[in-house]
Amino acid sequence: MKKQIEVPPCQDCQGRIHNHLFCSLSDKELDVFSANKGGNFYKKGQNIFYEGNRGHGLYCIYSGKVKVHKLGDEAKEQIVRFAKEGEILGYRSLLSDEPYNATATAIEDSVICYVPKSRFLEVLENNSKLTFKTIQLLTRDLKASEKKIINITQKPVLERIAEALLILKEKFGLADDGQTLNVVLTRREIGDLAGVTTETTIRTLSDLNKKGVVRLQGKRIALVNMNQLTHLANLAD
């Protein structure tokens, strides 16, 4: 079960400073969020919201990492995106007034704030700049989903897995050694991100390990040869 905990006011949130939407909110607007929000602790593997449920508020990640995924037939999963500290979840459901399109699950212990829908929409309604930034965020999401279609229809498995590793590097960064991905995922989750079966993911990662492109250390993956990995991902831009 999720556990309610005390969270600092939005003004003091370090993650918010890097958030595209909320970095420029006024103190008054932040006060509206702070006065109405709640904080919850989610253990690794716990669901934050479920695909198909109605959204009643906005989730902001105070700390931790989350995967947003859709369940297909025969329990096959598709990871839509990952989110980390300072990022928000569930906003599309609020804006479109539709049920959640995906499920959000903590991939490590996470603290997540919850702002009621009415408060978020109230601030959005009165802040034209925030509306513009929200549109920008949605167009970025749209671009990413279009890119994913191209990858799935056109890119071979090796390219998709190489690109998935680069996406994870972009999202979570590297550890202090400058090589190891700053996130621990199962092979299945990497496959779900790339749109590849778990078996193929294991085989492909093992091949990359043998070729010295990556180094596998249990669930941790070090990107040893970035040039080669970028080349394998066939990224034109």
Binding site: K70, G72, E74, Q78, S96, T139, L142, S145, I152, G195
Partner: peptide, 17 residues
């Protein structure tokens, strides 16, 4: 935009599964 993203994500899911 929300509707468009939903459509694209559904297409991706269908393509995969």
């Amino acid at each position: 935009l929300c509707d468009r993203i939903t459509f694209m994500e559904k297409r991706t899911k269908n393509m995969l599964h």
